Simulated assay, not measured.
Amino acid sequence: MTVWVEGATGKAGRRVVDALTAAGVPVRAASRHPGEAHGSVTPVRFDWADERTWAPALGDAEALFVKGLDSDDDAAKTVARLIGSAPAARRVVLMSAVGVDRAPDDAPRRAVERAVQESGKRWTVLRPSWFLQNFDEDEWVFARALRETGELYAGSGDSPVGFTDTRDLADAAVTVLTEDGHDGRGYTVTGPEALTFGEMAALLAEASGRPIRHRDATIDEHRAHFARSGRPEAWVDHMLHLFALVRAGVFAPVTEDFRRLTGKAPRTPAAYAREVWRP
């Protein structure tokens, strides 16, 4: 079986590629800027905005790992067209997010889930929480402000989050892509505990040995902060929506789904902090 992985150079996608490779599974690693082939990994150019790249990128992959388009109102139709462009694929695994299964059917992310579920393929949905790797890898969500000013910029109040390590998401993806028994099911993949952003700031400060504080930004402050990224307004709106969901408690759940899928304990925020943020 060959697995096509979307976003293969991103925070989650490259860990999925690594985990599949470690499991001996051939991968078509799809991204706008593919690298060099190595081992069982075939990098392929893929661009959601250029459908001419789709069929060559998909090739003869028998399974798809899809992240989708978070801030696009037409994402569901686009994802449905992509799946329809992969006649050799029998299975689709979608990376969604915690709580999407409880969202209205016309909400963009829920509509993407439904497009996958109605695609005629065998499907599984993985719903991770906020990624721990956002703190050091996503420049305009957290990393730049943490590095330059020691501020964890998050308009979250005191609401906790069951932060997910991307490596755990990748291990869960390998399980549902390569083993039977997961068709038509959704799994909420979280860490072992829910922490507030203030508590995360304290962990990062302790691990790094420098002052880091949580800045509980107002909506206007957050919009101005994200606008400096130069990213589209739709992305800014999407991020503000995510923080509204944090304040509403949507990302607070902690589940045993990762342990059930893999037989392993999920990585802890403290372990991530010690590993990545040590001086």
Rank of each mutant, 00 (worst) to 15 (best):
V3P: 01
E6R: 09
E6N: 14
G7I: 09
A8C: 03
A8W: 09
T9Q: 10
K11C: 14
A12D: 08
G13E: 13
A19C: 15
T21Q: 04
A29C: 13
A30L: 04
R32L: 02
H38W: 15
G39K: 04
V44Q: 04
R45D: 12
R52G: 15
W54Y: 05
P56L: 09
P56A: 03
A57E: 12
A61R: 01
G68V: 00
L69H: 04
L69F: 02
D70Q: 11
S71F: 05
T78L: 04
I83E: 00
L94H: 05
A97H: 07
G99Q: 04
D101T: 14
D105Y: 13
A107P: 15
R109Q: 08
V116S: 12
V116Q: 08
S119R: 07
G120L: 14
R127Q: 14
W130D: 10
D138A: 15
W140D: 15
V141K: 01
R144D: 05
L146K: 14
R147I: 12
T149V: 13
G150E: 02
L152C: 04
G157F: 00
S159C: 09
S159Q: 08
P160W: 11
T164H: 12
D165G: 05
R167L: 07
A170Q: 12
T178D: 08
T178R: 04
E179Q: 07
D180A: 12
G184Y: 03
R185W: 14
R185N: 12
G186Q: 10
G186V: 09
T190I: 01
P192K: 13
A194Q: 02
A194D: 10
L195Q: 04
A202D: 06
A205R: 08
R210Q: 03
I212L: 08
R215G: 07
R215S: 10
D216F: 11
T218A: 07
T218P: 03
E221K: 01
R223N: 01
R223W: 00
H225T: 02
H225R: 06
A227P: 00
S229R: 01
H238L: 10
M239Y: 06
L245T: 08
L245Q: 07
V250G: 06
E256A: 09
E256K: 05
E256M: 14
P266T: 06
Y272C: 03
R274L: 15
E275I: 06
E275S: 13
E275T: 14
R278S: 13
R278W: 05
R278L: 14
P279N: 10
P279A: 02
P279L: 03
